[in-house]
């Protein structure tokens, strides 16, 4: 599990192929606020692969939010869909790109497999 949004994005960029993004090309920019400063992450999605830059360039979808929110999301502690609905995360542009990217974030760390409820977990691990 990633500790921060930069680590999470770095891991995504290292993936040779993200099947979930295979159907859509586009660009997403994260404008993340921390201590009164805005950090930019520019994400280009092409044929299931993402490339990153720190440039403040135009994008098809721009997300504005606190860096702490995205860090928490990278750890599975915050849900970005509800952050979007409550406007903790403000979106401009193509919603589809956000919804696809959101799917790549991890679930809550304590989440269980349905089998954990009925079977003893193999080797004590879920």
């Amino acid at each position: 599990m990633s500790a921060s949004i930069e680590e999470f994005l770095g891991e995504l960029a290292d993936c040779p192929y993200l099947q979930r993004l295979a159907r859509v090309d586009g660009t997403v920019r994260l404008d993340l606020t921390e201590d009164g400063q805005i950090h930019h992450w520019h994400i280009t999605i092409t044929s299931g692969k993402i490339t990153l830059s720190r440039e403040n360039r135009p994008a098809d979808c721009v997300l504005h939010g606190d860096k702490a929110l995205l860090d928490a999301a990278a750890r599975g502690e915050r849900n970005l869909t509800t952050a979007w609905l409550t406007r903790n995360l403000v979106l401009e542009g193509r919603v589809e790109l956000f919804r696809l990217l959101e799917r790549l974030f991890p679930g809550p760390p304590a989440a269980r497999n349905p089998r954990d409820l009925v079977l003893p977990p193999p080797g004590g691990q879920s």
Binding site: G107, P108, A111, P114
Partner: peptide, 15 residues
Amino acid sequence: SIPQGSRLDDFRDEE
């Protein structure tokens, strides 16, 4: 297709 489950999340019964 877009919101198809991608992770475990107890609150949403997602898998």
